[in-house]
């Protein structure tokens, strides 16, 4: 049975390669198009702007990819991100503890909330859509309560803004001032891709999405692994919370609603199936970049904002349609 699961995984990952190529080609074409359309597009400060704009959504999308591969959905990622940012604010600014505690608290709080969502879904059999919708609202309210409905600033923790806006790469290569937030995105993506493709947790993530019943019958503790996936995803939201709080030098308690849809859109553009059992981190990263390159390019071209929204919607539908057509033929 394990062998069947494994071969199924292999089949599914190889079929994802073409989708990634398709998405990647679209991304390249977009870059070429915008470079030709405006000379302001391909300058270092703008490219860095795009990278920075992708870092938060990219990390959230990586987290939600895991949940979507299990056949679930997580609507709470946006407000969970905000909640972890507020927790970091409480620990660092209100309690005045050292930076490391803030980082651990944010990621820990994220993982804990993910654990609760996972338990609701796996053990109490609440549908993921409902469980995480509830969590989304609970976390939004809790963030407002804890913060006293005011932004919490990190002025007393000087190193905090470096988490996202500093540049370790820039220190080594002065001509590449890539912000740390982007570095964190790639580190998170690499680690999660490794977990997904090389570890038991990754194998069971795919198994849960493709045939949960088969996995259970073959002796896999599906509930346990599902809770693990939600917890990991929650911890990743904690990382996103740190990046956004560091970038804004503040925890904005009212922010976050709607960010889950951006993350889910990036995942879907990247070829991960909402039905579960199929998907990749590389695809999700490409999907997140397609969204931010598109938006930035349209802004650089001074396209009116109402049209930016329409074009973004069309691209999402087009990307998913192209994927469906391809899969029906193969």
């Amino acid at each position: 049975m394990t062998m069947i699961v494994q071969s199924e995984v292999k089949k599914r990952t190889s079929s994802g390669v073409h989708q990634k190529l398709l998405a990647f080609a679209s991304l390249i074409i977009m870059l070429v198009f915008f470079s030709l359309a405006s000379s302001n597009f391909l300058q270092t400060s703008n490219i860095i702007g795009i990278l920075q704009a992708t870092s938060v959504n990219g990390v959230l999308a990586v987290g939600v990819t895991l949940v979507i591969i299990t056949g679930g959905i997580d609507l709470s990622v946006g407000t969970l991100m905000t909640f972890t940012a507020v927790i970091a604010g409480v620990v660092l600014t209100y309690l005045g503890m050292p930076l490391l505690f803030g980082i651990v608290a944010a990621i820990g709080a994220g993982a804990f909330c993910g654990f609760i969502s996972g338990t609701l879904v796996a053990r109490m059999k609440v549908p993921p859509f409902i469980a995480t919708l509830g969590m989304m609202l609970i976390l939004k309210g809790t963030s407002l309560v804890i913060s006293g409905t005011k932004p919490i600033y990190f002025n007393n923790t000087p190193g905090f803004s470096q988490i996202s806006t500093g540049s370790l790469i820039g220190q080594v290569f002065p001509f590449l001032p890539i912000p740390n937030g982007v570095l964190i995105l790639f580190v998170v993506a690499t680690v999660v891709a490794f977990i997904l493709n090389r570890t038991a947790l990754g194998r069971y993530t795919f198994a849960l999405g493709s045939n949960e019943e088969a996995a259970r019958l073959s002796g896999v503790d599906t509930d346990f692994w599902k809770i693990c996936v939600y917890s990991l995803s929650g911890g990743i939201c904690g990382v996103a919370g740190l990046i956004i709080a560091s970038r804004l030098n503040s925890a904005q308690p009212a922010l976050g609603l709607g960010y889950e849809l951006d993350a889910i859109a990036a995942v879907v553009i990247g070829g991960t199936s909402l039905a579960g059992g199929r998907g990749s981190i590389l695809g999700t990263i490409i999907g997140a970049f397609i969204m931010s390159v598109l938006l930035n390019g349209l802004r650089i071209m001074s396209v009116a904002q109402e049209w930016q929204t329409i074009v973004t919607g069309l691209i999402i539908i087009l990307a998913v349609y192209a994927d469906m057509v391809r899969r029906q033929r193969t």
Binding site: L21, L22, A25, S26, I29, M30, F33, A37, S38, G297, L298, I300, M301, S302, V303, A304, W307, Q308, I310, V311, L314, I315, L318, A319, A322, V325, R326
Partner: peptide, 20 residues
Amino acid sequence: RSILAALSAVAILSAGGVAH
């Protein structure tokens, strides 16, 4: 198919685009 998708993307973009 990738070319097709890309072309339509470009078409949409140019339709919405305004020269600066």
